Measured scan of single mutants.
Amino acid sequence: MDEEYDVIVLGTGLTECILSGIMSVNGKKVLHMDRNPYYGGESSSITPLEELYKRFQLLEGPPESMGRGRDWNVDLIPKFLMANGQLVKMLLYTEVTRYLDFKVVEGSFVYKGGKIYKVPSTETEALASNLMGMFEKRRFRKFLVFVANFDENDPKTFEGVDPQTTSMRDVYRKFDLGQDVIDFTGHALALYRTDDYLDQPCLETVNRIKLYSESLARYGKSPYLYPLYGLGELPQGFARLSAIYGGTYMLNKPVDDIIMENGKVVGVKSEGEVARCKQLICDPSYIPDRVRKAGQVIRIICILSHPIKNTNDANSCQIIIPQNQVNRKSDIYVCMISYAHNVAAQGKYIAIASTTVETTDPEKEVEPALELLEPIDQKFVAISDLYEPIDDGCESQVFCSCSYDATTHFETTCNDIKDIYKRMAGTAFDFENMKRKQNDVFGEAEQ
């Protein structure tokens, strides 16, 4: 370990593993360490099931009705991949897709007046949907046509809207959309967690709705994908990429100290040895004095023996409960997957309800979601602090990732990755940087 590296990475969460992969592909010498004996950090999948019970201090362990412990891979952080989103792009560019198998999530649902409705995925579904009345549908269709044709580089498509100054509230007004449709559009399509976006320039919202539609167009059922064997497969896929390009991995490796000289990182000390480096990437748990708390998320993992009611017996789905429907500031989400994804025993389902904490009784906040899941065989409640770095790391060369937020997709995580890359490399992130180099010394032969 007593060696000189360009970059040392602490923690094998998804953000850290993707950055480690990119740095290795770009010719950097990388050492990647984790104090845990497993990959994934906060974003790991726990197996066998006995391990999950232990982690949540349920000492009696799983009953026999849960089947074989080894058949379970339970995500600690519930997220899906947008089919046309940035993480899929990263997987394709790096060819990490060859280590993973994905399934399309069967449906996306939205909560309205105590019931759940399928988010329409085709024009026919939209016309048949009970989510809105006849005239509302016509106006909504006009709005969707506007979004589909919108091109930020072609003012002819703006229809009198200025993407940089017109607020989204004004765009909704222009198409005369009612409150329910606005809730549905902002939260189930643009996937905002709160209503803060309404008074911001509309460009980002329009682009988010386009991303949803384009992702949906790829597979038809929903815009989301999920990897077989759980999300823990993602960091491992990128760790393989890093290793192929010469990255060194050490799990179960305690970090005793991060060594600084004149305010700059110069190395990491572990078990009496020092590895030197020019730059350091880590998750917040490794540098508690360089991060601040930015809120909390509650996630309740529920094991069920039945599909969720009114989802047409889907073996995977997402449910969004827009905040307006339950008098909150932030949406509540449910991600459900099952034995069909090799993450649970035969006939079992895993539904994870999550939201940003707003009160001193977080469990009560998630109740509307839990009511949709009854009866629940077993619950595991996790309340996590969200951390963000206190500075950009440019001076110390210590670059810290943000905690995983309450969103049900990876777009915010990818933004964090691109942002850290830019601060480390001094140049904007470009997907081309992730391409495997042809015929290089570490390149794998085609399968």
Rank of each mutant, 00 (worst) to 15 (best):
K418Q: 09
K329R: 11
E95Y: 02
L373Y: 15
N153E: 15
S167C: 13
P63T: 01
K422T: 06
L234A: 15
E16W: 02
P362H: 00
T359G: 13
T122V: 02
C335F: 07
P288C: 06
E95K: 03
N315W: 12
Y172L: 01
K89D: 04
R70L: 06
V381I: 06
E432G: 10
Q86K: 00
L31M: 00
P362T: 00
T359A: 06
N130L: 13
K278Q: 07
N415A: 15
A351N: 15
G246V: 01
S24E: 02
V171G: 06
E444V: 06
F146S: 10
D289K: 09
E388M: 03
N310S: 08
F143Y: 03
I300T: 12
L59E: 02
L211C: 14
S305C: 01
Q236H: 02
R218M: 12
T205I: 06
E374H: 13
E432Y: 04
R208C: 08
K142W: 01
Y349K: 15
N415C: 14
V88I: 08
K112A: 07
V110S: 10
V265N: 04
Q179E: 05
P389F: 13
G267H: 02
S213Y: 12
R35P: 11
N149G: 14
I352L: 01
L58N: 06
Y286S: 08
Q57L: 01
Y249K: 06
M260S: 07
T122N: 11
I301S: 08
F140L: 07
A340S: 04
G40R: 00
K253D: 14
F135A: 01
D377C: 07
A314Y: 13
I18L: 13
D2A: 05
H32I: 11
I46Y: 14
K348E: 07
G41R: 04
D75Y: 00
I376D: 14
P375A: 05
S65G: 06
S213I: 11
T47K: 00
V25M: 07
I321G: 09
V343L: 02
G230S: 01
L10R: 03
S270W: 01
I116R: 01
K174M: 14
E371Q: 07
E136V: 03
L372F: 10
K142S: 02
N310F: 07
Y421N: 04
S270D: 01
E4Y: 13
I8C: 11
M168A: 14
L198I: 14
N36D: 10
F429L: 12
V326D: 04
Y229S: 03
T427F: 11
F143C: 03
D440L: 08
E123Q: 15
Y421M: 03
V206I: 08
K348T: 11
D71Y: 04
N130A: 00
S330L: 02
G114V: 04
V119F: 12
Y111A: 05
